[in-house]
Write a protein that binds this DNA or RNA. Structure first.
Length: 337
DNA sequence: AATTTCACG
DNA sequence: ACGTACGTGAAATTA
């Protein structure tokens, strides 16, 4: 439609209409917002609203997913037919879908328990970074603290936007950050993103060292490993193609973090299952969403099961960093969050 | 069958 | 100059 001069193309040379691209074009033509709105609605209708009711099992009256242990490269589970690890929550209409997930019986509740900031805690543990370890020991707001550090201001002076930017940097660290990736997400210039990253590494020097050490380890051995020794092999780590090598380097950083988190919740799940059995409880562990467990719990078991779940999750793997588990019960999945 | 888009952590 | 944030699965579109 000639809305923009050099429109972004996909790798097959089509004009890209991805959400990222359309968001930047919003306001330049009235149709853009309408397309985004229609996309969002048709996604929810086609993927969830029209589909999930068809998948209710006649015998059990419930929807059953299949968890697969051998698909992901990091050790996470994946969920298929249907995928119950991508049920909407981020926007208001999506939340209505999550509300449909309810307990088996009237006198039961759903319990949702999730690890707080698990991947940042793991990188703090693996890197041994003193100031990040301190922050978690004091249970500080890690994104606010990071903002204070990289912008060289006091905690009280951090604005919402600075905190938002620092949060993006923290996420970027876990993914194996690049100045380009950060600049795209923050809508800033690449050199500004680079300055943010440099400031970050000055404040958390052990994290920088850890990331370099992971890449070195991968180059030498051809794989990286989690705290429980789960390996991810990285065939491209010594590639002469810098783009291909860059992918492998970011995997070398991310896989031990995401994989350690996966190891941890799997151990927690085994222990929770054993305890529920031993104590002959009626409660059932019904879903896992990477850093979260959902249980169906008779009301009279809420107290015993919540402390059982919290302790199994908090103590799954012995670490120096304290782990934090948020847990709530409610009459549907949305409100248990 | 491959690609694009978008839902989640 | 290149062209990237990590990990998935499902539905719709394109080839």
């Amino acid at each position: 439609m000639k809305i923009v001069n050099n429109p972004k193309k996909t790798k097959t040379k089509q004009y890209s209409t991805s959400e990222d691209v359309l968001k930047k074009l919003e306001g330049k033509h009235p149709v853009i917002s309408l397309i985004l709105e229609h996309r969002s609605l048709s996604k929810l209708k086609n993927t969830y609203v029209d589909t999930l009711p068809e998948l209710i099992n006649k015998k059990t009256g419930r929807i059953h997913t299949t968890y697969t242990q051998t698909i992901t490269s990091t050790g996470r589970l994946s969920s298929q037919n249907p995928n119950l690890q991508n049920i909407p929550i981020r926007n208001e209409r999506g939340k209505e879908i999550r509300k449909c997930f309810i307990p088996l019986k009237d006198d039961h509740l759903l319990m949702a328990a999730d690890y707080s900031q698990i991947e940042l805690r793991i990188i703090a543990e693996l890197s041994g970074d003193e100031s990040m370890i301190e922050a978690f020991k004091k249970d500080l707001d890690i994104h606010r603290l990071t903002a204070a550090k990289v912008f060289k201001i006091k905690l009280e002076e951090v604005t919402d936007d600075q905190r938002r930017q620092a949060k993006m940097v923290n996420f970027g660290i876990i993914y194996g950050i690049s100045a380009y990736g950060l600049s795209e997400r923050l809508g800033i210039k690449r050199h500004e993103a680079k300055e943010l990253i440099d400031a970050y590494f000055e404040e958390y020097p052990a994290i920088k060292k850890y990331m370099e050490a992971q890449i070195e380890f991968a180059k030498k051995h051809g794989y990286v490993e989690t705290i429980m020794k789960r390996r991810r092999y990285l065939a491209d780590i010594n590639s002469a193609n810098s783009v291909v090598r860059g992918f492998a380097e970011r995997n070398a950083i991310n896989a031990p973090i995401q994989g350690t988190s996966a190891d941890m919740i799997k151990i927690a799940m085994i222990n929770i299952h054993c305890h529920l059995n031993q104590k002959q409880l009626q409660s059932k562990m019904i879903m896992q969403v990477h850093d979260e467990l959902i249980l169906d719990v008779p009301k009279e078991e809420v107290e015993v099961v919540s402390s059982l779940v919290k302790s199994c999750m908090s103590n799954a793997i012995r670490m120096k960093i304290p782990l934090k588990v948020d847990l709530q019960t409610a009459k549907n999945w949305l409100e248990a969050h």
